[in-house]
């Protein structure tokens, strides 16, 4: 099974998270997260290209307030419960967000891939909009330079 064969991962989702290896820019200007947003949050996640969804899955995370910043830990799984990876996102004193990819499925276990995936997810998680969308009805969209769009839609899981 080729690592980048999307067909192979359609059942298991999130191999298309691989496409997060390119830089990801928010679709809207970033807004500051409200300090009241914490606790268990969850989203349905779609990876789109050309308006069509390539893959879907779920992101479930615990968000905690740490000295005015937000820390997150959670997991990406597909609807069948197959885990792509766990993650921890920490807000550093410098204000930057660092994401550690934990227990990835085999296809995502390449160290370079994990590093790049962590860096791109840091951009997603550093935006307060992702947390705000968990409370509201609108999805959070993040477009990458490769033409992929990542859509996090609030979902009660």
């Amino acid at each position: 099974m080729r690592l980048f064969s999307l067909d192979s991962f359609k059942f298991f989702s999130f191999a298309a998270i691989l496409s997060l290896v390119v830089s990801c820019s928010a679709a809207r200007p970033a807004e500051t997260a409200t300090s009241s947003l914490s606790g268990r949050m969850s989203w349905s996640v779609s990876v789109m290209r050309g308006g069509s969804a390539l893959l879907t899955g779920l992101c479930i995370a615990d968000v905690s307030d740490i000295q005015g910043g937000k820390d997150m830990k959670g997991t990406f799984v597909n609807e069948f419960g197959v885990r792509a990876f766990d993650f921890k996102a920490e807000r550093k004193p410098s204000g930057k967000t660092r994401v550690k990819i934990l227990s990835p499925m085999k296809a995502l276990s390449n160290p370079v891939l994990r590093h790049v995936l962590g860096k791109d997810l840091a951009k997603v998680f550093s935006s307060g909009e992702l947390l705000e969308c968990a409370q509201d009805e609108f999805p959070y969209r993040c477009s990458s330079a490769s033409g992929m769009e990542y859509v996090f839609s609030p979902s009660a899981i």
């Binding site: 349905s44 779609s46 789109m48 969804a53 879907t56 609807e79 839609s153």
Partner: peptide, 27 residues
């Protein structure tokens, strides 16, 4: 899957369907 999310998988020998609340994929 009907709760807490909607997701449908069908395999009928010829075609496969994967349908979430936001997208539908067949093969």
């Amino acid at each position: 899957y009907t709760s807490p999310y909607s997701y449908l998988f069908i395999m009928n020998g010829e075609k496969v369907l994967l349908q979430s609340s936001t997208s539908t994929t067949t093969g």
